[in-house]
Nucleic acid binder design. Structure first.
Length: 428
RNA sequence: GGAGAGAUGGCUGAGUCCGGUUUAAGGCGCUCGACUCGAAAUCGAGAAAGGUCGAAAGAUCUUCGGGGGUUCGAAUCCCUCUCUCUCCGCCA
């Protein structure tokens, strides 16, 4: 969330930012509630100071009358403070709720626009793959190769679930290992995180566990939800802590399963593996000093690019416009891989890297102590190393041969002990 | 799942039985200073985080795992939740 003082001081800019981002938030109401909160705190503190004084007086030797007098006075003060405290609590509750709806500020260079049509293409790697035959989509390919079974997923768990089978399993593990190995070489500390997290951690990361647009599965009768990304657990990992400046930047990698309800997300372009309820992902997460977060975002993007370039998959790099940023992001870059089978060939998002500045840190209370001994909110960033399901779409569709076999990208061959996937020979 | 013991500042650790003299002792580590050519040792001093008001100086409040309660007053009493440890059971 944004700092209250910042909102009050820069109310007009905050309002404009909400408009740019196509988010409705009542900034005026937040400002008014914040002022009400301040004066309530002052009043309550005054009463508490008097209570403390009164209690101190009770320690000295007193006559019965004096004692009775002080107790009476204390009772009155207490009644007053309880009343004030209740008022303050209700203001805080309303304020927090409204404050959370205000998105992060936006990098001045981020393109302005309502939706992804306004995103800026920054770079294009290779040209869309060309075929001298009609390419199939990954669903057909996966079925023929017998590595992907959506029917079985639907039978056992419902639509948008799937089984990976045979060489598909090897391919998934190869992608994960390739990503993990790449990240080690870049100085990331590897983690396998829990696949469930407390709702307070979800909230702190900017996900709304039970909101109307919740993408999140929550576990009945508990305070837990299935995570939508390891960003949640890696952000929660240091919640409430204070870093020493010398330990920054800290780069983490998190391998987890990701769960998304994807309510209402149907249609052609979300066919097959593109939008599923469960997938595996290796996520990058970084904690930095505020002055280093811009450079760290570039670093995360360069790792993502390297991964897809070494997989030799055509992609384009886009910078997301204001309307496509999501609440916590200050600036965001996506990599969209070429997917020949998607609507007859189109780019589809495979990674996303965001600089969240201090927006998550403020909610999660993560700080760092600088050499000047001052502590400040830290900056957090996240980026996808490999979202396995979508990477598999890109590999199957770009590397397919006329006979339906798939050439394995060079960098994955050692991890799989295979360089080609071929459809099984049907026994008669 | 059962039984028991715990959670105190950067770390360690007293205080909790029996509420007020604690401004949360002592130790370790840390910072600064003295001594020293320099260091160690020693001596002296300092140091938590956050909120509110304030231009600032400062004032004041909150925080002894979380939440709630009793009381004029809670680290201390009561309720509740979470987590940790020991033993037992079950288990990949």
């Amino acid at each position: 969330m944004l700092d209250l003082k910042f909102i009050i001081k820069n109310a007009e800019e905050v309002k404009k930012n909400c408009l740019d981002r196509n988010i409705s938030a009542d900034v005026n109401a937040v400002v008014n509630l914040a002022k009400e909160r301040s004066s309530l705190i002052s009043e309550l503190d005054d009463i508490r100071a008097k209570q403390n004084q009164n209690a101190k007086l009770m320690k000295s030797k007193l006559t019965e009358d004096e004692r009775a007098e002080l107790i009476k006075k204390g009772s009155a003060l207490k009644a007053e403070s309880v009343k004030k405290d209740e008022l303050l609590k209700s203001v805080n509750l309303r304020l927090k709720d409204m404050q959370a709806k205000i998105p992060n500020m936006t990098h001045p260079n981020a393109p302005r626009g309502k939706d992804e049509d306004s995103n800026n293409v920054k770079y294009i790697f290779k040209h869309p793959t060309e075929f001298d035959f009609t390419p199939q989509d990954h669903v057909e390919l996966g079925k023929k190769l017998d590595i992907l079974d959506f029917d079985a997923g639907a039978k056992v768990s419902g639509q948008k679930f799937y089984f990976m089978k045979g060489d598909g399993v090897l391919l998934e593990q190869a992608l994960i290992n390739f990503a993990l190995k790449t990240l080690i070489s870049k100085g990331f500390i590897l983690h396998i995180t829990p696949d469930l997290a407390k709702n307070s951690v979800l909230f702190g990361t900017g996900f709304n566990p039970r909101g109307s647009e919740a993408q999140i599965y929550s576990i009945e009768n508990t305070d837990l939800s299935l995570i939508a990304t390891a960003e949640i657990t890696l952000a929660g990992l240091y919640s409430g802590e204070i870093f020493q400046e010398k330990d920054l930047p800290l780069k983490l990698a998190g391998y987890s399963h990701c769960f998304r309800t994807e309510a209402g997300a149907y249609g052609k372009s979300s066919k097959g593996l593109y939008r599923v309820h469960q997938f595996s992902k290796v996520e990058m997460f970084a904690y930095t000093r505020p002055e280093d977060s811009d450079a760290m975002l570039d670093e995360l993007v360069s790792v993502e690019r390297e991964i897809f370039e070494r997989l030799e998959i055509p992609y384009r790099l886009v910078e997301c416009c204001t309307g496509d940023l999501g609440g916590p992001a200050y600036r965001k870059y996506d990599i969209e891989a070429w997917m020949p089978g998607r609507d007859g060939g189109s780019y589809g998002e495979v990674t996303s890297a965001s600089n969240c500045t201090d927006y998550q840190a403020r909610r999660l209370n993560i700080k760092y102590k600088s050499s000047s001994k001052e502590s400040n909110f830290i900056h957090t960033l996240n980026g996808t190393a490999i979202a396995v399901s979508r990477a598999i779409i890109a590999i199957l569709e770009n590397y397919q041969q006329k006979d339906g076999s798939i050439i394995i990208p060079k960098v994955l061959r050692n991890f799989m002990d295979k360089d080609i996937l071929t459809p099984p020979v049907k026994s008669k």
